[in-house]
């Protein structure tokens, strides 16, 4: 038995995979790579594999995390090489670390995520949109409406928005980088920002670029926490 923490990308076709489909895809890739996953005991054994915070369908990522347990002990570099050979395009293992002890779950440690949003906007509205975005950081409350199966509710996302930067890429094309809370203490969603812009914008692309654990201003990456 050996435990590993992996970081990986999720792009191209794979960004449209649901959390469940992603798990199945990685499970099959591990089997192709002949890396035997450990399974739980019991009547319905399930693979010992757990992901970091879920990513909405359609958002790609430069940095996702996954913990898994294998029945054999493989050097981390081997695991990375073998798995990369059997993954579909869009999934790439960036780093693998063999955990010395059973790590705290990814979902319990990761509490910050950075998103890069690219919008198409009406060039005449661009300065106003940029102003509106910057104004968000100065507001005390930012209310968005969220819909779930129990209906709609209004949420103040301001406490979860930690940073926001804009950059004009070219005329009519705007990049917004947001750093926000993720996990059990709150969740900033890229959609929240889209909703708060008081002008029509077309979302061209959203990328999650980074995740980490932050406490009292100290940043630790998940791979350094296992």
């Amino acid at each position: 038995m050996a435990e590993y923490r992996l970081s990986f990308t999720k792009g191209s076709s794979v960004q449209f995979l649901s959390h469940l489909d992603l798990a199945k895809t990685i499970e099959r890739a591990l089997r192709r790579a002949d890396i035997p996953l450990a399974y739980s005991e019991g009547f319905h054994p399930h693979p010992k594999m757990s992901f970091g915070p879920a990513l909405a369908v359609g958002i790609s990522s430069l940095e996702e995390y996954l913990d898994l347990e294998t029945v054999i002990d493989i050097p981390a570099e081997d695991l990375q090489k073998r798995l990369n050979r059997s993954l579909p395009d869009g999934l790439q293992i960036l780093a693998v670390k063999r955990c010395l002890k059973h790590p705290k779950p990814l979902n319990a440690v990761i509490n910050r995520a950075v998103y890069n949003l690219i919008f198409e906007v009406d060039p005449s509205q661009q300065p106003a949109i940029v102003d509106a975005l910057h104004h968000m950081m100065d507001s005390d409350r930012l209310e968005v409406t969220r819909t779930n199966k129990n209906g709609q509710k209004v949420v103040n996302i301001r406490p979860w928005l930690h940073n926001l930067k804009t950059e004009t890429l070219e005329e009519g094309e705007l990049q917004v980088v947001i750093t926000g809370e993720i996990g059990s203490n709150g969740n900033l969603r890229p959609d929240d920002i889209v909703q708060l812009i008081p002008f029509p914008v077309k979302v061209r692309r959203i990328v999650r670029t980074e995740m980490w654990h932050e406490e009292n201003g100290i940043i630790v990456k998940p791979l350094d926490l296992c």
Partner: peptide
């Protein structure tokens, strides 16, 4: 079911 339309399967 967007993966109906993306291709890129292994």
């Amino acid at each position: 079911k967007p993966t109906r339309y993306t291709g890129g399967e292994y």
